[in-house]
Computed example of a mutant assay.
Amino acid sequence: MTRIERVVVPLRVLLVLGFAGLVVAQTFSLPGQFRYMAEQNPDLGPVPWLLLAFAVLEVLCIQVVIVCTWRLLTLVRADRIFSDESFGWVDGIVWALVVGWVLLAGVSAFIVGVIYFTPELRDPGTPMLLFGLVLIGGVVVLTVVVLRALLRQAAVLRADMEDVI
């Protein structure tokens, strides 16, 4: 077993387990939780169902990242990670993260607005938590964009080295 196989195989096992857990969450846990919320708080109107849509879309973004990561691992094993094919999968990860981040920022802004304009809900903890999550999400998105640029540079350098050799 090569050095890379020692990392790729366990990572693939974890990706499969994570993907399966997300499918279970999407189909059973999240709908059940938000249905229960709607039943217990009928005065919320459509809010639980909007939050369900948000949660399912966020999970879908994570699933896209998992699938793209799986494909990149296939390219790593085949020693083709520096090919043009890999950039499509990395772009898939970037766009999934951007969509997830924009959704999170939008829902967070809405929730903070509701809290701000509802005097009995003015607990500073929730807005601070949401701001922190949006900040961390932005850092993750920008880090992946930088890693994509590094992959591009490495691909160019590898192509140059292959031309020399």
Score class of each variant (00 low, 15 high):
residue 101 W to P: 02
residue 136 I to R: 00
residue 107 V to L: 13
residue 133 L to Q: 14
residue 129 L to V: 15
residue 131 F to N: 04
residue 130 L to N: 00
residue 121 L to R: 05
residue 100 G to A: 07
residue 102 V to N: 11
residue 130 L to C: 00
residue 112 V to L: 09
residue 115 I to C: 11
residue 135 L to C: 08
residue 119 P to Q: 07
residue 105 A to W: 14
residue 127 P to C: 10
residue 133 L to I: 11
residue 113 G to T: 06
residue 130 L to V: 04
residue 102 V to E: 09
residue 136 I to D: 03
residue 116 Y to Q: 07
residue 132 G to L: 04
residue 109 A to T: 15
residue 121 L to K: 04
residue 136 I to Q: 01
residue 125 G to A: 10
residue 121 L to H: 03
residue 118 T to E: 08
residue 120 E to K: 05
residue 129 L to Q: 12
residue 116 Y to D: 13
residue 118 T to R: 00
residue 101 W to T: 14
residue 107 V to M: 15
residue 119 P to A: 15
residue 104 L to C: 03
residue 122 R to G: 14
residue 129 L to F: 13
residue 106 G to Q: 02
residue 116 Y to T: 12
residue 130 L to F: 01
residue 131 F to V: 15
residue 120 E to L: 03
residue 105 A to I: 09
residue 102 V to Q: 12
residue 136 I to P: 02
residue 114 V to C: 12
residue 122 R to S: 06
residue 120 E to C: 02
residue 118 T to D: 01
residue 121 L to N: 08
residue 115 I to N: 00
residue 111 I to K: 08
residue 119 P to C: 10
residue 100 G to H: 12
residue 113 G to R: 04
residue 111 I to H: 11
residue 120 E to P: 04
residue 131 F to L: 12
residue 108 S to P: 11
residue 113 G to D: 04
residue 104 L to M: 12
residue 126 T to G: 04
residue 105 A to T: 15
residue 105 A to R: 14
residue 123 D to C: 00
residue 103 L to P: 00
residue 133 L to V: 12
residue 115 I to G: 06
residue 122 R to K: 11
residue 103 L to W: 01
residue 118 T to Y: 10
residue 113 G to Y: 04
residue 110 F to K: 00
residue 104 L to W: 02
residue 111 I to P: 08
residue 107 V to D: 08
residue 117 F to R: 12
residue 130 L to Q: 00
residue 105 A to N: 10
residue 126 T to I: 15
residue 105 A to H: 11
residue 110 F to T: 05
residue 129 L to N: 12
residue 127 P to H: 07
residue 128 M to N: 08
residue 101 W to D: 06
residue 106 G to K: 02
residue 121 L to F: 07
residue 103 L to S: 03
residue 109 A to F: 14
residue 127 P to V: 14
residue 131 F to P: 00
residue 102 V to A: 15
residue 115 I to H: 01
residue 128 M to E: 10
residue 114 V to P: 05
residue 102 V to L: 15
residue 108 S to I: 12
residue 121 L to E: 04
residue 129 L to K: 05
residue 134 V to K: 03
residue 104 L to K: 13
residue 105 A to V: 15
residue 127 P to Q: 10
residue 117 F to C: 02
residue 126 T to H: 05
residue 114 V to K: 11
